[in-house]
Amino acid sequence: MRQINQMLLEMASGNFFYRLERSSQNNNVEALIIMLNMLAEEIQEILIHQGYANTNETFSQIVQMTFLLDEHGHVIMTNKEACNILSMLCTDIINKPFETLLIKKSQTKWKQCWESLVLKNLHDTSLELIFKTKSSLIIPKVCHITTCKNKKEEQGQVIVTIIHQSTNQAEIEKKLKNRITKSTRKEPSLETKKNTSKTPKIRLSHDDIRKIRKGHDIIVNNLDKELPSLRDFALQLGTNEFKLKYGFKELYGTTVYRFLLLERLKKSKMMIQYTDLQLKSIAHMVGFKSFPHFSRAFKKHFEYTPSELRKKALNEEI
């Protein structure tokens, strides 16, 4: 219960990367824990996604924790943020074996990785490890592990870096600010087109968002059917073409047609790889009218043709 409180407190302060450890019991507390973990995952994703959809640039990543290890796998140096996140004192971490920071399951994984690292001179790898904080919250993270060599020293050292996609409040604020300044910059062109005074940036109501989400679900559920024109599709959803176009891009970071194409290609890829249905009928099943058209689009996106993929899948090369 104490851990759940701790997790909720962290979430309230905007830290969505903590998780609670699950046991195999089936009771209400465990149900609450699994919900809380998944909720934190979803919120974390939304925050990153928002950053992505707003600026349409790659999202910023900040180094969260860094550890410098000696040849025995003991921590020599670490950064302040790592101490904060793990809620430990610097002295608790330094000179301790790195694996003491991990949960049991990750410890074995780390040891295996370490053994293979020791054999190699210079090496880069990444590994998903789960950290445990002092208050027993857990943090699953992909770590980047680099071995470095110094000319003077015979023994190599290892740097473990943990990158976090920014959920930092300040970072989000910055993006939001960016977005606002960007959209104000865009406004003049809109105004000249419409010749109206100060049209504010279009605002999507909750209702609009619900409608666009519904549109998204309709597309995913009807990949085999032809999509009506955007105008008709918008009408069917109870919104207008402009809002649909704008809102879809805002919500999913891509256009309606591009999204449809990608989903169709994704589905076709699964079918090619794991079934023996004719490529032509797969093309038809995912809504392409002609096979050459499908094949071209497929090649353009994946950089290999459907038949190449089928051939490889049949030979069990992939």
Binding site: N26, N27, N28, E30, A31, I34, M35, M38
Partner: peptide
């Protein structure tokens, strides 16, 4: 089986 897997599926 409630509650854990039921919650999981609902989510």
């Amino acid at each position: 089986e409630p509650p854990v897997s039921e919650m999981l599926s609902e989510f």
